[in-house]
C-alpha cells in the first residue's frame, strides 16, 4: 500500500517535471542554432528529455513489482 502510494507520488512528480521540461522558459535555452553530433540542439534536447521522462516513468512503475 505504501509502495503504491509512493509510485503515485513519483509519477505526479514526473508529470510536473515534464511540464517544466517541455515549456517556456527551459525550452528557450535550447532554441538556438547549434548542434550536438550534427543533430540540431533543440531537436536533440526535446528527444533526450522525452526519452528520459519515459524511462523514468517506466522505472517508477516497473520497479514497484519487485
Amino acid at each position: 500500500m505504501h509502495r503504491r502510494m509512493r509510485t503515485g507520488e513519483r509519477l505526479v512528480a514526473a508529470f510536473l517535471g515534464g511540464c517544466v521540461l517541455f515549456n517556456y522558459p527551459l525550452l528557450s535555452l535550447f532554441d538556438r542554432a547549434a548542434s550536438v553530433f550534427g543533430v540540431p540542439l533543440l531537436y536533440a534536447y526535446v528527444f533526450v528529455a522525452w526519452g528520459g521522462l519515459i524511462a523514468l516513468m517506466a522505472w517508477f512503475i516497473e520497479r514497484r513489482g519487485e
Partner: peptide
C-alpha cells in the same frame, strides 16, 4: 506523454 504520467489517477 505527460497525461499518461497521471493515468494511474
Amino acid at each position: 506523454t505527460l497525461v499518461m504520467a497521471l493515468a494511474w489517477f
